[in-house]
Design a protein around this nucleic acid. Structure first.
Lengths: 146, 146
DNA sequence: CACTTACTATTAGCGTACTATATAAACCTG
DNA sequence: CAGGTTTATATAGTACGCTAATAGTAAGTG
C-alpha cells in the first residue's frame, strides 16, 4: 500500500472512492432483506420518510432525502403502482403533489421493523461503531452541502 | 430529533441513509471539478486505478473498484471513445480484455493532480478528519463484503 | 386586471449499477 | 482429444440520479 505522499491519486486513499464503495457495498446487503417487502433501497428510504410523516409533498421528501424531484417523481410512481402510496394534487395548492401512505403502506412498517437488525447482524459491527460512522457521515454531508 | 428508542426506523438514524446521502453529496462536489477533464466521477475512479497500473483486465479493475463487469463494460467503452484508453483482447488469453491507457490518458493525470486539493477546499474539513472518515468507511466496506 | 415572476412537478436524455443471461475461450477429466 | 465445466466479457432489462427543459399553477406588481 503506497502512501499519500508517494501517490496523491492512489485509489485507496481517496475518501470519495471509499464513500462510493461503502455505499454500494452496504446497500447490497439490503437487497435480499428488502426483496420480501418488494422495495429497493431508495424506495425503502422514501418509506422511512413517509412513516415519519404522511402526507408529504415531493419537495418536502426531496429536502429530507436530499434527492432531486426528477429522481423522486418516477420512484414515487413505482411505489404508487406497488400500492404503498397515492399521488394526488394538493387541494390548497394545485402545483403541489400530496404523497400519502395507503393502509398497505402503513402496514408495511411492521415488516420493516425487522430490517435494521438484520443489516446490523450481517455487518457484524458493534452498535457504537455504527453510531460513530453515522456521525462521521453526517459531518461529511453537512460539509458537502454547506 | 427523535431518538432511536422512540423510532428505530427514523430516517436520520439510519447509517445506510447517511451513507447514501454522503456519497451523493460528496460526489456532487466533483462534477464541476471533473467537467474540464471530461470525466464523470466513476470514470475518474477508473482512471485512478489505471494510473496505478496499466494495462489491466476488466476483472482486475472490477476487483479493485468493487464494480460488476456489466457496469464497467459500457463505462470503459465511453472512456475509449474519449480517447483515454484502448480495449484489446489479450494475446495470451482471448477471453480477457486488455485495458490500456493511451498517451492522452497518461497525460490526463497531470490535470487530475489538482482535483483532490479542490475537493478538500470545497469540503473545508481538516485533513485529519477526512483521513479518519476514510478509515471508518474502509471498515464499513470490509464488514459489508466479508 | 394584465403581466411578469416564481414555484412545483414532470419529462427527456445521459450515465451509472445491479441481476440474469448469453457467448466464447480456456481448462480439465476421463 | 472429446465433452463438460469454469472463466472473462458482453448484452438485456430494470431502477436510480443527475441536469436541462417544459408545463401548469400561484403570487407579486404596475
Amino acid at each position: 500500500m503506497t502512501t499519500v505522499q508517494e501517490n496523491p491519486l492512489a485509489l485507496e486513499w481517496q475518501v470519495c472512492f471509499n464513500l462510493a464503495a461503502a455505499s454500494r457495498s452496504v446497500i447490497a446487503l439490503y437487497r435480499p432483506v428488502l426483496e420480501p417487502l418488494g422495495l429497493t433501497h431508495p424506495q425503502y428510504l422514501v418509506m422511512l420518510a413517509l412513516w415519519e410523516k404522511s402526507p408529504r409533498t415531493v419537495s418536502e421528501l426531496g429536502a429530507e432525502l436530499l434527492l432531486e424531484p426528477a429522481t423522486l417523481s418516477p420512484l414515487l410512481k413505482r411505489l404508487a403502482n406497488a400500492g404503498y402510496l397515492t399521488r394526488e394534487r394538493s387541494t390548497s395548492d394545485e402545483r403541489a403533489l400530496a404523497v400519502t401512505l395507503t393502509p398497505d403502506g402503513v402496514a408495511l412498517r411492521e415488516k420493516a421493523l425487522a430490517v435494521p437488525g438484520q443489516i446490523v447482524a450481517k455487518l457484524g459491527l458493534p452498535l457504537e461503531e455504527l453510531e460513530h460512522a453515522r456521525h462521521v457521515l453526517h459531518r461529511l454531508i453537512e460539509a458537502a452541502i454547506a
